[in-house]
């Protein structure tokens, strides 16, 4: 554990809490992509199957359980409790365009051709692109609530901090996971446009709106 990984995990946790708080306090999931959230639940489910087979640490187990539970909690709030507020007209990204190629790629490029390892690889690839329906939704509506933009900033920062963690681990631990690093870089690059808008608008007290 190093400082980049820990702050990355905290940013990830903060993002999830921010989203749950936004939905709970406003009693609405308007502006949140249910498709991105479904894919995040799928990401956590397929990645953390090693909870059953492999104990790493109490921290690791606790965080994994929180991530899985919170992702299904978010789905419950979006699709059951506050279903009426779900903005499905703007959530039109086709999930199969991501899930199918990602599933194919995880069969072709992985560390080990075994069920758990393929599912882990699938989750890493899927996570890297799972935010696209959310970003697509914002580009369609042209804006995002400030709390939603804080959520996205925390969520994007998490993988960027993990890149620093991988640099650290490469130099100090001789650890290098090509699949995680490439996917993590793709994931972070997808947020760059959003980061720019967030810093130039939200940090100056304005709402996140897209240039016409």
């Amino acid at each position: 554990m190093n400082v980049f990984r820990l702050t990355g995990d905290i940013a990830h946790l903060l993002a999830i809490i921010l989203l749950l708080m936004k939905i709970w306090k406003t009693r609405s999931c308007a502006g949140v992509s249910g498709k991105s959230q479904m894919m995040f639940a799928l990401v956590f489910t397929t990645r953390y199957l090693d909870l059953i087979t492999n104990f790493i640490s109490l921290y690791n187990t606790t965080m994994k359980m929180i991530f899985i539970a919170s992702s299904y909690g978010t789905l419950y709030l979006m699709f059951l409790k506050f279903r009426a507020t779900y903005d499905s007209n703007h959530d039109t990204f086709r999930m199969e365009f991501l899930v199918v190629p990602v599933a194919g790629l995880s069969f072709l490029v992985n560390h080990d051709f075994s069920p758990l390892e393929i599912l882990w690889t699938f989750s890493i690839y899927l996570e890297s692109v799972a935010i696209l329906p959310q970003l697509f939704m914002i580009s369609k509506t042209g804006e995002a609530e400030t709390i939603t933009s804080h959520y996205l900033f925390a969520l994007g920062s998490y993988r960027a901090l993990y890149i620093l963690n991988w640099v650290y681990r490469f130099y100090f631990e001789g650890f290098f996971d090509l699949i995680a690093v490439v996917a993590g870089c793709v994931q972070t690059v997808l947020y760059c446009d959003f980061f720019y808008l967030y810093i130039t608008k939200v940090w100056k007290g304005k709402k996140l709106t897209l240039p016409a």
């Binding site: 995990d9 492999n54 690791n60 991530f67 390892e117 993990y162 963690n165 290098f176 995680a180």
Partner: peptide, 10 residues
């Protein structure tokens, strides 16, 4: 180093 398959990261 060989590719890691005991995934300790989240």
């Amino acid at each position: 180093p060989p590719p890691p398959t005991d995934h300790d990261e989240l």
